[in-house]
Amino acid sequence: MQQNPEMDYVGFWPRVGATLIDTLLLLIIIMPMLIAIYGRSYFSTDSLFRGPAHFMISCVMPPLIQLAFWITLSTTPGKMAIGAIIVDAKTGNKPSAGQCVKRCLSSYLSALPLYLGFFWIGKDSRKQGWHDKIADTVVIRRKTAAVPASPGLPLQ
């Protein structure tokens, strides 16, 4: 995809902010479910694995929710908050479901070597992490035209 003057690549720090928003929203969903199943003792155990419900709710459900947002809306609530969407790197169109699945799975590869694949976003000219490169996607903001001043209203 050529650099389009109507689009900006979204860099590392805005994407960190979007991820924090997504994480908080997921916690609002996940924690009540875990407490309902395991009770308040969920927080007092040192066990990493608390049971099949814990695995499904904490490890399987979040990436599935994320994937559902990517496939249907090309974004997540956190990315919506910063005005960002995921697009195909070649065409600028909505990514395919296959690209979204590949992006989701390859995000684990981006995380494995000390999150280097995510830090790569800060270095890359198109702000792509390794998962974006593997899935051939980019995260962009569409530029909006300046809103013309209304007649009769003073400019500030």
Rank of each mutant, 00 (worst) to 15 (best):
I85T: 01
W70T: 01
V60E: 10
D88H: 08
L64M: 15
S58P: 15
V87N: 02
I82F: 12
I82N: 09
F69W: 02
V87L: 03
C59M: 14
P63M: 03
C59Q: 15
A89I: 07
A97W: 02
P95N: 07
F69D: 11
I71N: 06
W70L: 08
A81W: 10
I57V: 15
S74Q: 00
L64C: 15
I85L: 09
M56R: 14
P62F: 12
C100Y: 03
A81K: 09
G78I: 06
P77V: 09
A81G: 01
I85P: 02
G98Y: 08
Q99H: 10
I71L: 09
V60H: 12
I85H: 03
G78W: 04
L73P: 03
P77E: 14
V87P: 00
I85E: 12
I85S: 04
Q66I: 15
T75A: 05
C59G: 12
W70F: 09
L67I: 12
L73T: 06
I65E: 11
M80V: 03
S74T: 05
G78N: 03
T91E: 10
P62A: 14
L64H: 00
L64K: 11
M56C: 06
T91Y: 02
M56L: 05
V60S: 11
K90N: 07
T72K: 13
M61L: 10
I57C: 10
S96M: 07
P77Q: 11
I86A: 04
T75K: 02
C59W: 13
F69Y: 13
N93I: 04
T76S: 12
T72G: 07
A53W: 14
G78Q: 10
F55D: 11
M56Y: 06
K79T: 08
S74D: 00
K79L: 05
C100W: 04
I86R: 05
A81L: 08
T76C: 03
M80F: 08
K94H: 07
P95V: 10
W70C: 12
M61I: 14
F55A: 02
T76V: 08
G78D: 14
I85K: 01
F55Y: 10
A68Q: 15
V87Y: 02
P52E: 14
G92N: 03
P63Y: 03
A53M: 13
N93E: 08
T72M: 09
F69K: 06
I65C: 09
G98M: 08
M80L: 03
P63Q: 12
Q66M: 15
L64G: 03
M80Y: 01
A68D: 12
A53C: 07
V87S: 02
W70S: 01
T91M: 15
S96I: 00
A53K: 09
T76F: 03
K90I: 09
Q99W: 07
V60K: 15
V60C: 15
P63T: 13
